[in-house]
């Protein structure tokens, strides 16, 4: 019985942040792969990713807020072309994967 106030206090500490914090952010994903297709008008991009011989396509959208860059300089989605190697930081939304940032990587310095 003497432990009850301590337990209640502990519970309050644990529960309060969950009740008062901001909404849970959608999980983020980082992909590194080769550009397969780019459709600037549709704002979509397909990356080839995968493991060894088992390759997979990842489809994502680039929106107005997506920062696309190469060597620290902003570029347009249309500047990306098939064969380019990029890193894309994305989050899952109701539209599917949306990229927050896409960085073109120089393949020769990518390791």
């Amino acid at each position: 019985m003497r432990y009850l106030p301590r337990a209640a206090a502990l519970a309050a500490i644990l529960v309060t942040p969950a009740l008062t914090s901001a909404p849970v952010q959608p999980p983020t994903y980082t992909y590194r792969g080769t550009v397969h297709t780019v459709q600037p008008r549709a704002g979509s991009l397909e990356l080839i990713t995968g493991v060894g011989f088992a390759l997979r396509l990842v489809q994502m959208r680039a929106v107005a807020a997506t920062r696309i860059e190469k060597a620290g300089v902003a570029i347009a989605l249309a500047d990306l072309k098939p064969g380019d190697i990029v890193r894309a930081d994305c989050r899952r939304t109701s539209l599917g994967l949306v990229a927050d940032r896409i960085v073109e990587i120089d393949g020769t310095a990518a390791r």
Partner: peptide, 28 residues
Amino acid sequence: RAVDGRLGRFGRKAFIATLDEFNAGAFV
């Protein structure tokens, strides 16, 4: 270079970066 830009060394076209990835991809 592998799809993510790392140096390739496995496979007849040196397309796979590491042995573990070569094996994991081969299972699939």
